[in-house]
Simulated scan of single mutants.
Amino acid sequence: MERARMFMKVVSLLCLVVLSNAIESPKYEVVHSESDFDVRLYTESTWMSAPVRELSFEKATLFGFHRLFQFIQGANLNYSRIPMTSPVVTSIVPGAGPLHSSAYVVRFYLPVKFQADPPTPLPELHLKPYVWDSHCVAVRKFSGFAKDENIVREAEKLAISLRRSPWANGTSSDSDYAYSIAQYSSPFQFIGRVNEIWVDIDASGIDACKPGNIAAY
């Protein structure tokens, strides 16, 4: 019963993840576009990360975001209230399990105001800042809800598309994550939902993927 109440509480908190002009997002530019995926160059940015040990992607996202939500509501040494940003990103750490993983990292993009000096989370939240170096990411959009039963399928579709593209040998072997799921929509939004599969690209020798002037989207 207590677990069910926690589940519903975190679902309610996730309703705050709604796209609007007031919500900040990480900056990028599109450097390559195909019919079913893009390659984006993201600028360096700082995120707050919540590691989670779970077999279920859905549960990992809920439990990780619950800790992140406490952080942005003031559970930090500065008692700072931090505005909501989007997307909420869940990265899958390679491993064993039904989803090829038993470990995840749920990430919250810090607003520009806090990028250089993030507030220190309370120790019991087990959060830590993560600096995301500027690099290229292959991105596939998909609609509906991101669930345990469809995220692997969507990641496989992106992998097939990449193998058929000029980026066939571009998947980064140095990445800490198999792939990531970016969620932009509230759980109670049923139409026009936006999700993305992200895969890091190793394109250090490609000029398009070198840091430059990156516009905000």
Rank of each mutant, 00 (worst) to 15 (best):
residue 184 Y to R: 10
residue 140 R to C: 00
residue 112 V to L: 15
residue 113 K to M: 09
residue 171 T to A: 07
residue 10 V to R: 10
residue 128 K to D: 08
residue 130 Y to D: 12
residue 138 A to S: 06
residue 173 S to H: 10
residue 63 F to P: 00
residue 120 T to R: 15
residue 187 P to W: 01
residue 48 M to A: 03
residue 166 P to L: 03
residue 136 C to S: 05
residue 62 L to K: 05
residue 63 F to R: 14
residue 127 L to E: 08
residue 36 D to A: 04
residue 2 E to K: 14
residue 193 R to E: 08
residue 48 M to R: 09
residue 74 G to Y: 04
residue 157 K to A: 06
residue 52 V to W: 05
residue 128 K to W: 09
residue 156 E to A: 09
residue 46 T to E: 07
residue 138 A to P: 03
residue 216 A to H: 10
residue 57 F to L: 05
residue 7 F to L: 11
residue 136 C to V: 02
residue 206 I to F: 08
residue 35 S to F: 05
residue 123 P to G: 05
residue 136 C to D: 02
residue 10 V to E: 12
residue 31 V to E: 02
residue 38 D to P: 00
residue 198 W to H: 10
residue 43 T to G: 15
residue 60 A to N: 06
residue 216 A to N: 11
residue 176 D to S: 10
residue 207 D to I: 02
residue 81 R to C: 01
residue 175 S to Q: 04
residue 201 I to Y: 04
residue 77 L to V: 07
residue 117 D to H: 14
residue 36 D to W: 00
residue 54 E to R: 12
residue 10 V to K: 08
residue 4 A to F: 12
residue 202 D to S: 14
residue 60 A to Q: 06
residue 152 V to R: 15
residue 145 F to K: 14
residue 9 K to F: 08
residue 136 C to E: 04
residue 198 W to S: 00
residue 9 K to R: 15
residue 114 F to G: 03
residue 110 L to F: 05
residue 194 V to W: 13
residue 171 T to I: 13
residue 105 V to S: 08
residue 45 S to D: 11
residue 54 E to S: 12
residue 52 V to N: 07
residue 207 D to Q: 11
residue 127 L to Y: 10
residue 206 I to V: 15
residue 95 G to L: 02
residue 55 L to Y: 12
residue 211 P to C: 04
residue 175 S to T: 05
residue 161 S to G: 06
residue 90 T to L: 02
residue 106 V to M: 14
residue 175 S to E: 01
residue 174 D to L: 09
residue 96 A to M: 14
